[in-house]
């Protein structure tokens, strides 16, 4: 870990300005991803801006329906919020399927969205990795890629986004609200928040320099059965091989998004409409153009079968 200076931000805009103007500056929230990566010198900030304590840890109703989740709300608190449990069950379920109790007590809404891939080659600084070191190549292609992506990937990077929470937010059509150094704010639809790797896998989101997440807005509750099904090798404390977030109405209609398969929460709106037609139709649509590798091709079968499990659960 490189030496860094540390300061507590005074306000959200102050933080954004500092982040834009101080060389090597980064925000730190829960720290559970950033410090992990700093210890390995995968992240090398020289200045940390602590954004805890800016009062962004509240969950508030939005006029006309919906909820606004502060960027610093801890994953535990978000999962345990009575309104979320009642109206956005898929979000609670996704959150509690992620990481461990200890980590969720620290992890924040913004930090969770911005956590980086768990690609094992990204984590090993001796290995070529375009995401960690642009232009160095991708060791995962042709290597051990069982965990990695099957769609939305590129010949430069096949990493997945590891968040569970973001998959539920994607199915809920959340938007990410930010502030920029000049004080302006904007709302980025979650669909556009994470970007695909293309030839620049080190660029992962739509955020601009210094831009800070202040909250995530959930639209009015989407009625129906809320399900989050996470598939993994061990029963807990493991990243998803495949996960399925779904909200499905009595009529069999609804929305579905997948985790563990792509560089971002994977949803294809056209696939939602096929839900009444069964898992095969949905999976075929979701994975049109998929580019699996030898050791992760099973994810296509697994995704279809997991969607089938979710549809069966919704019916029951």
């Amino acid at each position: 870990m490189r030496p860094f200076t540390y300061e507590r931000a005074k306000s959200a805009q102050d933080a954004a300005v500092k982040a834009a103007t101080t060389p090597g500056a980064r925000f730190i929230a829960g720290g559970t991803n950033l410090l992990d990566l700093m210890k390995l010198e995968i992240e090398t900030p020289t200045h940390l801006i602590d954004v805890n304590g800016l009062g962004m840890d509240r969950i508030e109703p939005i006029d006309g329906g919906g909820l606004r989740i502060g960027a610093l709300v801890r994953n535990t608190d978000l999962a345990a919020d009575a309104r979320v449990r009642k109206d956005y069950g898929v979000l609670t379920r996704a959150l509690v399927a992620g990481a461990s109790g200890q980590l969720r007590n620290k992890a924040t809404t913004a930090g969770n969205l911005l956590q980086r891939t768990r690609c094992p080659y990204f984590y090993d600084v001796n290995m070529p990795c375009n995401k960690r070191k642009p232009g160095s190549g991708c060791a995962a292609i042709g290597g051990f890629s069982r965990q990695l992506g099957v769609i939305g990937t590129s010949d430069a990077c096949i990493a997945t986004h590891p968040s569970d929470m973001a998959v539920a937010m994607r199915v809920l059509d959340a938007s990410v609200e930010t502030i920029r150094p000049d004080g302006t704010t904007r709302a980025i639809p979650i669909a556009d928040f994470h970007t695909l790797p293309g030839q620049t896998p080190h660029v992962e989101t739509a955020l601009e320099k210094g831009e800070m997440i202040i909250s995530v807005a959930l639209p009015k509750p989407r009625g129906g059965t809320h399900i989050y099904r996470k598939v993994r090798d061990r029963a807990s404390y493991a990243f998803a091989l495949v996960s399925v977030a779904a909200v499905i109405g009595k009529d069999g209609k609804g929305a579905v998004a997948l985790g563990g398969v792509a560089p971002k929460p994977w949803r294809v709106e056209g696939a939602d409409a096929l839900l009444p037609n069964g898992s095969k139709a949905v999976a075929d649509r979701l994975f049109a153009g998929a580019a699996p590798r030898e050791d992760n091709a099973f994810k296509l079968t697994l995704a279809q079968r997991t969607i089938a499990a979710v549809l069966a659960e919704a019916k029951a």
Binding site: P120, R234, S236, Y237
Partner: peptide, 9 residues
């Protein structure tokens, strides 16, 4: 990366 059993297993 190297998974060993946890309580829930």
């Amino acid at each position: 990366g190297y998974e060993v059993p946890v309580h829930a297993d």
